[in-house]
Design a binder for these strands. Structure first.
Lengths: 166, 166
DNA sequence: GATGTTACGTTATAATATAACAATATAGCA
DNA sequence: TGCTATATTGTTATATTATAACGTAACATC
């Protein structure tokens, strides 16, 4: 099966990335329409670039890609769009990389975990309820009210273990 | 009981912080002696400052504290000491804060989880084997080799929930 | 179309971190 | 002890990530 979206695993060789990007944007457009959010041309383009990069991408990389296509852009331009996309659950920020990646489940307001390959740079997004429940249990024991969870695991993905030089 | 080290919870009112700092430094000295590591005056002082701050502290805060006591210091000065302390498990880096905190179990090379209070700035270090095992299970399913784990939970600690203005 | 709000442009700067090379201190050995 | 290799620290410059502050343009609502 050739999944049309970035699934909860590292993309395989037969992964059709163009379809995956298109699907994600369609989903974002629908979501914003439903929610009365303004997915402006700039925000749309930034989201598209994030998906097109196909792996966590830095704000200044995105900025360069925008300016290369002729758009006038300074850091605030990109950070504002990133803020909008983050606030509305269309992308995630990967803290340990200072990078941004498209969200697989836009609008669900879920807590995600990321497995990040240090060889190829790809990141797999999981949503393991078990991790959430263990964290919740610890928080309860501490009397701690959870606001935000950051779970990021760095290492080597299965593909990169097979071929040493990706 | 008045614990003499920062325990696996948020410090209580009767927490004797001076003893806690002294204890941590003694432990670090012993550990470095055993391992043949050079805990130089600078590194010792940086570690002391980290413990004395009693909560995650930024590199440039430490730098300022060093210069205020008359020592010549530039960013590389502090980052090198931080690198040494990180490599040898004497401190942790809290990615989501870009800050550093003393390790409760120096030398154990353990994976820690942090619960960070957004009100008082304190961080509790846990070492919950259950979280590790769940992550390990997910990694196995993905065929992913884990190198480094980052688990950071932000929220409000029990003390701060009781008194609104800490 | 007047008006309030949201989004974007622009300039400057803050905050965090590293590169590159020189000077000094320390350890280990002749 | 003195020599030499290595580790540590000093110093200058710069890279990288992010935000403040303020003006302008677009849009939405009346």
């Amino acid at each position: 099966m050739n999944s049309s979206k970035r699934s909860e695993q590292f993309p395989t060789a037969d992964h059709d990335h163009q379809t995956c990007v298109t699907h994600a944007l369609q989903e974002a457009e629908d979501f914003c329409l439903q929610q009365g959010l303004r997915l402006t041309e700039l925000r749309h383009r930034v989201l598209e670039l994030i998906w097109a990069n196909h792996q966590p991408v830095g704000a200044y990389d995105l900025l360069e890609q925008l300016t290369h296509e002729g758009r006038k852009a300074a850091p605030p331009t990109i950070y504002r769009s990133l803020d909008f996309l983050l606030e509305n659950g269309l992308i995630h920020r990967i803290t340990s990389l200072n990078a941004y990646v498209g969200c697989n489940h836009p609008g669900l307001n879920h807590a995600a975990q990321f497995f990040i390959c240090e060889a190829c740079g790809q990141a797999a997004e999981l949503d393991d309820a078990k991790i959430e429940s263990v964290i919740a249990r610890d928080a309860k024991r501490l009397g701690f009210t959870v606001e935000k969870r950051t779970v990021e695991v760095a290492g080597i993905c299965a593909h990169c273990k097979q071929r040493p030089n990706p």
